[in-house]
Computed example of a mutant assay.
Amino acid sequence: MAQIDYFFATLSPYSYLAGMRLEEIAAKHGATINYKPLDIIALFGRTGGVPPKDRHISRIEYRAQELVRQARNLDMPLNLQPAHWPTNMAPSSYAVIAAIQDGSGDVGKLCHSFLRACWAEEKDIADDGVIRDCLEQAGFNPSIADSGLLVGAETYAANLEEAVDRGVFGAPFYITPDGQRFWGQDRLDDLDRHLAEMK
């Protein structure tokens, strides 16, 4: 069974625009997904990238146009200037890591719930109430938000180190068992074709 290592940030608009397509592709090919939330701003700094706010105006303007286009193409709601962006990604990332350890709900749905909360619902994903709501919507006991914080912090940091070591430089980022790397939600069709070829 193929495994897809999925590096993402709970605050990334492009991870949001991926929707649940990765989960659909994995199910189609009988693959499993290893969810690896990370600190995207730290990743930029480690791999030659620049945080959105510090980019040249031409890149800022293009990003704004492209996000709107992609959202329209995908028929997904998107607030280009969400009320709670940027915010602290760590609490929601720790919740994802706790959910992976717990295993009782739908991790993919949880990840998308956090992303949708930020980019479509004007919610602060660093807020404890929002985190608990997202956990509950995805079939987890909200109380797991209080558990495994040390493991969450250690795993979150380890995911960043692994990402740097494996050539990840943005989010969403997908790596297949044969080392093929796919960057961006607009490469999901390529990932789909590659998984078909691996069979």
Rank of each mutant, 00 (worst) to 15 (best):
F169E: 03
A145C: 11
V168R: 00
F140D: 04
M1Y: 06
P77R: 14
I60N: 02
L38T: 05
V130G: 05
F114E: 00
Q180W: 11
F140S: 05
A158K: 13
L11F: 02
W183T: 06
D192W: 08
L135C: 08
C134S: 13
L38I: 08
I97H: 01
K109G: 06
Y14K: 02
L78W: 03
L191N: 07
S15W: 01
A9T: 05
W183Q: 10
G108N: 07
A117E: 01
C134L: 12
L149D: 04
I25G: 04
R55Q: 13
L149H: 15
G179R: 09
D189M: 08
H112G: 01
E61V: 04
D54R: 07
H56G: 03
E197T: 13
D133Q: 15
I25T: 01
R132T: 08
G48F: 12
G170H: 00
W183E: 08
A42M: 09
N141Y: 08
A42N: 09
A83L: 10
Q81A: 07
W183I: 10
G45Y: 11
P142D: 12
H84E: 00
K53E: 07
Y6G: 00
N88K: 00
M198I: 11
T32Y: 07
A64R: 11
A9N: 01
R193D: 10
D190E: 15
G148H: 09
E161N: 12
M76S: 06
Q70E: 08
D133A: 13
P142I: 10
A171V: 09
K36F: 02
Q3G: 06
I100V: 15
R132F: 07
T32M: 08
S92I: 00
A126W: 03
P82W: 00
D190M: 15
G45N: 14
L17E: 02
E154R: 14
A98I: 04
L115G: 01
N159T: 09
H194T: 12
K36P: 03
G19K: 08
C111A: 12
D165W: 02
Y94A: 02
R166I: 03
D128C: 07
V130M: 11
C134K: 05
A90L: 11
H29D: 10
I100L: 12
N79T: 07
A98G: 09
A163I: 05
Q65G: 03
W119G: 03
R21G: 03
A71P: 03
H56A: 12
A126I: 06
H56C: 04
G139M: 14
